[in-house]
Design a protein around this nucleic acid. Structure first.
Lengths: 152, 152
DNA sequence: GTTTTTGCAAACCATTTGCAGGGTC
DNA sequence: GACCCTGCAAATGGTTTGCAAAAAC
């Protein structure tokens, strides 16, 4: 009865050991609809009495991040949050209402980056674009009488 | 003999009091060529025996940030760094060699953002683009020891 | 004179690390 | 069985806060 999720599969493929605590952390991540912080997972782990230690949560996030299935985003507040995503180059639109994100491909950005490199003379090795706003659901919710809230 | 720098002027204009410690912090920032962390300023303040407390450094950075003349950037390492800049919407290319940054205008990015909003249905309120690479000087310096191959 | 600001130290919060025991391949 | 991983607790590093004294307007 060993379930395999994409995140677990990514761990295996990269040669990391698949352990109980790691499965638990992955489960916690899967249960999140939007972005999450390390503290979120620790809190939730305690609430559910999973017995996963703080350190392991941090270490697992790091491992998943190395593998590329979890990515760190920097919220406007300065907090470090994480999201699960595909291990390919892309960017994110983050909903400031519910925290959900959507992946966005590089699209026209490639040209913008090239132009900037040309203008500044910098050799641009990496770039990061983050967008913040309201997702369609939260727009609807906000325009009515109800406040936006996470759904599950 | 009260000197006025752009940062100090911004403080005054916003109605903040211009104090000795704030002048000192602004002086420290002016002495930096690239980005800086709060810790950098604290260290430098101690070295120069300016008598500016840790808390004041943090509070001054916050105030300058509110006013818009200092902006936080999130380095790939996850560190929070700051740079002095103009209070208009723009983006940054950060040199991973020397830490110096250059401002970049919105240029073609505007279109990219609009396309993304259209594709995802999100109402995009804000965005942030950060580019990392090597500035022309650092490219030259590195080319002696590095093998060729940079873009262009 | 009133209101803001400061320095200090302690508090706080997030993240990391050392290490002995336990689990996985 | 060898090596990786985990939990715990303590250490760390960055940032905030309470408060009385000092400074700015």
């Amino acid at each position: 009865m060993v379930e395999t999720t994409p995140l677990i599969a990514a761990l295996e493929d990269a040669g990391y050991r698949v352990t109980g605590p790691r499965r638990n952390v992955v489960g916690l991540i899967a249960g999140r609809s939007g972005h999450f912080t390390a503290a979120d997972l620790v809190t939730e782990s305690n609430r559910r009495r999973l017995g996963v230690g703080r350190a392991t949560v941090f270490r697992t996030i790091e491992v998943l991040s190395d593998v590329g299935v979890v990515e760190r985003i920097d919220l406007p507040s300065g907090e470090h949050a994480y999201i699960a995503c595909q291990p390919v180059h892309h960017h994110h639109v983050v909903c400031s209402g519910c925290g959900r994100t959507r992946d966005v491909d590089d699209a026209g950005l490639r040209h913008v980056v090239r132009d900037i490199a040309r203008q500044t003379g910098y050799r641009v090795d990496d770039h990061r674009l983050e967008l913040f706003g309201l997702c369609p659901e939260c727009q609807t919710a906000a325009s009515g009488a109800n406040r936006p809230g996470p759904s599950r």
